[in-house]
Design a protein around this nucleic acid. Structure first.
Length: 211
DNA sequence: AACTCGGGGCA
DNA sequence: TGCCCAGAGTT
């Protein structure tokens, strides 16, 4: 995809998402980190529902340790893979207290050293909590990047690097979130809603299937 | 590269 | 009722 096309691609996404919801609503790096760890292979709505009461009372690693793994597990029981996730979140919270002064580190290697935190989760935290120009490539963005021709790549890391090269700098701050929302609700895996897609005129997939 | 974790949402 | 989901860790 050529540069002029990419610029219009993101301008259209920006216009379609004036007030993006979801992760951008988090102002606390710690609850953001916990929410993203919980969201692995689960639906965002399910995570939001389960964590609403939890985060009202528990918004620091100290409070999480005090709550304990058993009660945490009860809070997130409706989320898939909750057993492993609860264990990771307790362990991760203790590590934050012992090694990072109780704060979420603004550092990729430090973040990825935490249990349950991989490259995708680290990128979300770096972007949303600290304003770093990262792109977190999940299944949605991986599919969208390849399908549209915006950022083709064999692996998630390859797609991430392609996006970092191609996304205009002024859009880098929000590109990650726009792409996730677009992949989730419009450029869906099964049945992409091309008729209602704001970037269809820049999309190689739409050109191939409907032209 | 393949396998496992996992309850809820949705067709 | 069956299939899939805002991944990460292990083998």
């Amino acid at each position: 995809m050529v540069n002029a096309k990419i610029e219009k691609f993101f301008a259209a996404l920006a216009k379609a998402n004036p007030k993006p919801k979801g992760e951008l609503e988090y102002t606390n790096p710690y609850t953001l980190l916990v929410a993203v760890v919980l969201s692995a292979q689960a639906t965002d709505t399910g995570v939001n529902k389960a964590t609403r009461s939890l985060f009202a009372a528990v918004d620091t690693p100290e409070k999480m340790v005090k709550l304990g793994e058993k009660k945490l597990r009860n809070h997130v029981r409706t989320i898939g893979l909750f057993n492993t996730k609860a264990k990771n979140i307790l362990s991760l919270s203790k590590m934050l207290i012992e090694r990072f002064d109780g704060k979420v580190p603004r550092d990729r290697a430090a973040l990825e050293s935490l249990p349950g935190v991989g490259r995708k989760t680290a990128n979300v935290v770096l972007n949303i909590a600290f304003g770093e120009p990262t792109i977190a490539v999940d299944t949605h963005i991986f599919r969208l990047g390849n399908r549209t021709g915006l950022a083709p790549g064999k692996t998630p890391l390859a797609v991430e690097e392609a996006l970092l090269r191609r996304v205009p700098k002024k859009y880098l701050r929000h590109a990650h979130h726009w792409l996730i929302l677009h992949g989730r609700y419009v450029c869906k895996a099964r049945k992409p809603d091309c008729p209602n897609c704001v970037v269809r005129q820049f999309c190689e997939y739409d050109a191939k299937t409907t032209a």
